[in-house]
Design a binder for these strands. Sequence first.
DNA 1: GTCTATAAGGAGATAGAC
DNA 2: GTCTATCTCCTTATAGAC
Lengths: 204, 204
Amino acid sequence: MGLLHAIRFKDQAFQLREEAILDAATSTLASKGFDLMTMDDVAVAVGISKPSLYKHFKSKDELVSEAMIRLVDSALAHLDKLPGAMSPIDRLRALLEWALRVRLDGGLPLMPSTSAQVRDMLTRNVRYITRVLQLNKQLEQVVRNAKALGQLRQDLPDAVILFSYYARTCDPTVEYLQLYAKMEKDAILAHLIEVFFRGVSNRE
Amino acid sequence: MGLLHAIRFKDQAFQLREEAILDAATSTLASKGFDLMTMDDVAVAVGISKPSLYKHFKSKDELVSEAMIRLVDSALAHLDKLPGAMSPIDRLRALLEWALRVRLDGGLPLMPSTSAQVRDMLTRNVRYITRVLQLNKQLEQVVRNAKALGQLRQDLPDAVILFSYYARTCDPTVEYLQLYAKMEKDAILAHLIEVFFRGVSNRE
DNA sequence: GTCTATAAGGAGATAGAC
DNA sequence: GTCTATCTCCTTATAGAC
């Protein structure tokens, strides 16, 4: 039992460190972006040396991909936790609010807005793509359900609604209002969500 | 007269080359983004050597800043050319359509979405900031006018309308719909504009 | 597994010939 | 003013000692 326990403890410590690395990468990415984030930044933030970093993640690309995968997994988990009775449009609302809150608290945007570099990297990552497709499939269904219930405009193609929705998760309006209008987080959130859904909802 | 003519011709050729450089930088920036665009890329695209590039622009930052300044100048010029009789909300619509068309044709987004690096660089450029403030001042007035006429929602803060508007000029929905939904340019444009203004307009 | 030290390569910027 | 060739720095990634 002693040996097994020791192994487990070691694995656990390793796992914890890995989480710490991902946390550091996430917040550095959020503030500096992919290109300005260096592996040194991350190593220093975690308090380990760079070679140790590479024992966990074999490249910068892999580290960043894993951070994004973890984020999409959170989104899937959050979507899954929503009450089954919740209406389609409220599901969309709840997930968008979650994604925006993550960002406002210094996290990453669920969708990597417009960096060809990062987008290409992620597109080649099977584990990432699998999860994104899974999320997309679920949200496509939610949009269809919302349309069927008359909660979303019938005249808009599903793709327009869905991709506009994704774009809202990385909408720079958040930063603009924080930086230049000094608006409160909750107010920003409320306005963004309200304006978006007003644009795609049926008039009551 | 021969000498003067020669000087003028030289200046003109120099000027033309400068435009060519800015064009090349613009399209390279649009496709690869700031970090992946190298000075070599631009030099090769123009058909000159890198040192010649540096005769025109003393750094990569300056080159990119000038490209953005030229873009904002175009926006100001376009806004200025709109008929005086045009209603405020139609002015907003027209300028947004112009900005999105520029992007769809391989140009740059009027606002540099969310690159801390590029944003900081531009924030330190007085000539850029001057023009952006000028554009912002005019658009603030247009928004106020639209509100006064009841064309925009009175209950939304001006800042929310204005910054959401700016964000639409670099909205990644454009790329998503092009890449993943294979939608026509004009359709993308029409949907984006319609959904946005429905979100911020008074209900008729 | 963790560190110090370093290799390897890319990209911004320039020296110096023409 | 333009080019060839080069400098310099930074960053990813690793070798090798402990």
